[in-house]
Design a protein around this nucleic acid. Structure first.
Lengths: 126, 126, 126, 126
DNA sequence: GTGGTCTAGACCACG
DNA sequence: GTGGTCTAGACCACA
């Protein structure tokens, strides 16, 4: 799996990394139980600081995406995080804002839903 | 229109304010050409510093949501921002991540699209 | 002569007015010795404050573009302002910045000079 | 590169700074990809507040002159801003006024074009 | 009274 | 140590 960091983005590096790992899991590029590169290794590959990779990994562990195995190191969790109340509230807030913005700019519902559908399909296991 | 700031949130105050103004425009609570409260007034109402309000207003001006009439002060622009390449790229990145996250957590497409549809309908002019 | 104010411009109204009067003189739409509308009249026509028109007129008097005649009111001066050291220094600073900006953006010299020439020709008396 | 602020000037400090950075890029004193001093460093050097430097930097980022590399800090962008419709309209308005003023004062076309040419040559890479 | 500018000091996120 | 955020208070230009 290829990680691509935009060092000039407004999004922090650790957040970009975190999102790409989640997207990797969704796409099936990272399978459940699969080992991830070590913090040191990944940091070197991407050309970023150890602490930054560490932060991403820690958040993903916290969220339930990753687990640590004593022998194998960090790997993708077998059980994905749940849809809890907290998650759903954040999601709603985010969607509400995004759609408000899109609506103001004149995007119509069909365009938007098509876009969403497209991404959903790109993740569904073949 | 009522502004509600969560001072505990990780989202900066100016960004919360910015989003609520956009949502207000989408909902029709703020109409095109309508005057907004002065930075001082709004800052006092919300209980934040006027510079923070100023920052929100300035970003919204830059984006094309607000304009300053030198006689009347700040008001909602008659012409909403466009759907340019920059916007669409950001939107796609955001949607891609949100859907990847939702998909991993086991949300199905219909649930997600229903949610989106619901918000779209809440904005459409009756 | 038609005055067109953009109330949403970053340029102050009094400055827009001042510039348009100078441009009117350059174009010959306002001839030397010609009377200008009264402050009150012009303010009403444009839909701006008396003080604002007054400020423009006063600056233009200061600069030598306008003079006040006891009987006729404000009129275009017979003698235009001089090219003094102060003027030339400001001009150079302004031109230096404008050309630096244009140069960085990749505008070539010919394009720029053509533009200048075009405006010069638009002012030359037929 | 030496920054020189005129504290008596009517031009805001942040705007003077902004212009000098653009001129620095045009002259080649600031090369593409070159790192700029931190806001704190530059503020101290010039003897102004860091927020003022910050404002200049932010505007230049918005315009596309600067970028922030999250590892290295602020640097000159590799890609200069474009000549878009907005820029060209502003440029034309500015040039029109400047030439109207110069023309009224009796400056002839050749003098003016020579001045422009001189500045263009001072920026062209040797 | 409005927004714009500038200063100052503090805290935090990031790497 | 870097930039980002927030607060606070002051002065000025503008209308």
């Amino acid at each position: 799996m290829i990680i691509k960091i935009d060092f000039e983005s407004e999004t922090p590096i650790y957040e970009q990394l975190r999102r790409q790992i989640i997207e990797g899991i969704a796409k099936g590029e990272l399978k459940k139980g699969e080992e991830l590169p070590s913090v040191r290794q990944l940091a070197e590959d991407i050309g970023i600081n150890l602490h930054t990779v560490n932060k991403s990994y820690n958040i993903l562990k916290e969220e339930g995406y990753l687990v640590v195995d004593r022998r194998k190191g960090t790997m993708v969790s077998d059980i994905m995080p749940k849809i809890d109340e907290n998650y759903i509230n954040n999601l709603k807030e985010e969607i509400k804002y995004i759609i408000a913005d899109a609506y103001c700019r004149g995007m119509n519902k069909e365009e938007f839903l098509d876009l969403c559908e497209k991404y959903f399909h790109s993740f569904v296991k073949k």
